[in-house]
Design a protein around this nucleic acid. Structure first.
Length: 419
RNA sequence: GGAGAAAUACCCAAGUGGCUCAAGGGGCUCCCCUGCUAAGGGAGUAGACUGGAUAAAACUGGUGCGAGGGUUCAAAUCCCUCUUUCUCCGCCA
């Protein structure tokens, strides 16, 4: 979340910066509630100060066996007043909190201005899209023919938007996960295996709640949520912490399954591995000093790109515009892999710098030279595994229906061809 | 799932309603003494958050004993709910 005080004191500036985002946000209500809260706070705190003083006087009188009846009666009345002011505060504070939480991050000045994805700016390309002198098949057909991807069986045991991986298909998915984790840990990330379920506080911390509850699966027994991304458990590991400045930057990588309800995606990407209720992802998460976060975003994006380069998959990097970046993000690069079946680049990673937005929400600070300050948090997929599998199957397919295993995966696969 | 115990600051820990705006110790920081080590003496050590005041400070309130409520003039202390940890029982990969 943004700093309440900052919003209250720079309301017009905040409005101006949010104007380039999609959606509309009530900034004035924050200013109003903040002023109201401060008024009440002064009233109630003055009374509490009085109470503290007189209570001490009563204690002294009692100790000397004196009579404090009159003072106690007075304090009783004061107590009632305090209760009333506290009650008013108890109404305003949640309202103020909600109002602030519903305001998204301010786009960074380097984020291109635009109203939707058509205004995103391509930053660079790597590799060449696959071409062939035969007709390239979509990965769902390749997978079905090779009997390594089985959607009908998944539909039987679960439902739509699930896949059973079999044989070398399962092994391919696992090989990709291992390549990613090995690569990232060699480059300084600490591997983390977190819970796949989290509590409400964690979902609030990273911004999935309160606004996007219908996108997540919740668990009936205990009110937990299935994680939509490892970002949630991993970033929340340090919720409420004050980190030692010397420990920064902290860099984590985590493989987890991810669960998304995909509400509002009916009819889109219904075939294949592109949009599933459950999918695998390796996530990168960083906690860094504020002055380093922009450079760390570039580094993080490159760390994700390396996987695609190792796999020889053509991709491009896109800087999302103000209308397309996520709610909590101030700056985001999407990495898009070339997918022959879609005949375009498809998102395979989203690397974001949240600046202090998540840190303020989660109260993650570091102790530096000038006292404490909020850290900056970043994350990005490194990468979405299912989509990587899809891209490999399509990019490395042969005319006879077999799939050549990319060089980097051969040690993990134990074979150089899937047939 | 059942029964019991616990949660106090960086760590250990005292504290059953008002002389605790939390004792004492360890550790840490600084100073003195001694002097390449060790030992001794002294001072500091509740942070974080949030108000008021100010040009900015100095200054001055509030909150704070796992979390949230409640009782009371007054709560670390009494009551309720929750979380976590430990012990025992049950179940279990």
């Amino acid at each position: 979340m943004l700093d309440v005080k900052f919003i209250a004191e720079n309301t017009e500036e905040v409005k101006r910066q949010l104007a380039n985002r999609s959606g509309s946000y009530d900034v004035d209500i924050v200013k109003e509630l903040y002023a109201k809260r401060r008024e009440l706070l002064v009233e109630t705190e003055n009374r509490k100060a009085m109470r503290n003083r007189v209570t001490d006087e009563i204690a002294v009188i009692k100790r000397n066996k004196g009579d404090a009846t009159e003072l106690i009666a007075k304090m009783k009345a004061l107590g009632e007043e305090i209760k009333q002011f506290d009650a008013q505060l108890a109404e305003i504070e949640p309202a103020l909190k909600e109002a602030v939480l519903s305001i998204p991050n301010l786009p960074h000045e380097s984020t291109p201005v635009g109203k939707d994805e058509s205004c995103n700016v391509e930053v660079r390309r790597w590799g060449n899209p696959r071409t062939a002198d035969f007709e390239l098949k979509p990965h769902w057909d390749i997978g079905a023919n090779l009997k390594i991807l089985d959607a009908p069986t998944a539909a039987k045991i679960a439902g739509a938007r699930f896949t059973v991986y079999k044989g070398l298909g399962a092994r391919l998915e696992r090989a990709i996960i291992n390549l990613m984790l090995d690569t990232h840990t060699q480059r300084g990330y600490t591997e983390v295996m977190p819970p796949y379920m989290v509590n409400r506080d964690s979902m609030y911390g990273t911004g999935q709640l309160p606004k996007f509850e219908e996108d997540a699966f919740s668990v009936k027994n205990n009110g937990y949520f299935l994680i939509p991304t490892a970002e949630v458990p991993v970033t929340n590991m340090h919720r409420g912490d004050i980190l030692d400045a010397s420990s920064l930057p902290i860099k984590y990588c985590a493989y987890t399954a991810c669960f998304r309800a995909e509400a509002g995606s009916a009819g889109r990407d219904t075939r294949g591995l592109i949009r599933q209720h459950q999918f695998n992802k390796v996530e990168l998460v960083k906690f860094v000093r504020p002055e380093e976060s922009l450079a760390e975003l570039e580094a993080l994006t490159f760390d994700a790109e390396i996987i695609l380069q190792k796999l020889g998959l053509a991709y491009r990097v896109v800087s999302l515009c103000t209308g397309d970046i996520g709610f909590s993000s101030g700056k985001t690069y999407d990495i898009e892999v070339w997918l022959p079946s879609y005949n375009r680049y498809v998102e395979i990673s989203s690397c974001s710098n949240f600046f202090d937005y998540q840190a303020r929400r989660m109260n993650i600070k570091y102790r530096g030279e000038n006292g404490t300050a909020f850290v900056h948090t970043l994350n990005g997929s490194g990468l979405a595994v299912g989509r990587t599998t899809a891209a490999i199957l399509e990019t490395y397919q042969n005319a006879d229906g077999s799939v050549t295993v990319p060089q980097a995966l051969i040690p993990y696969m134990g074979t150089d061809i899937i047939r």
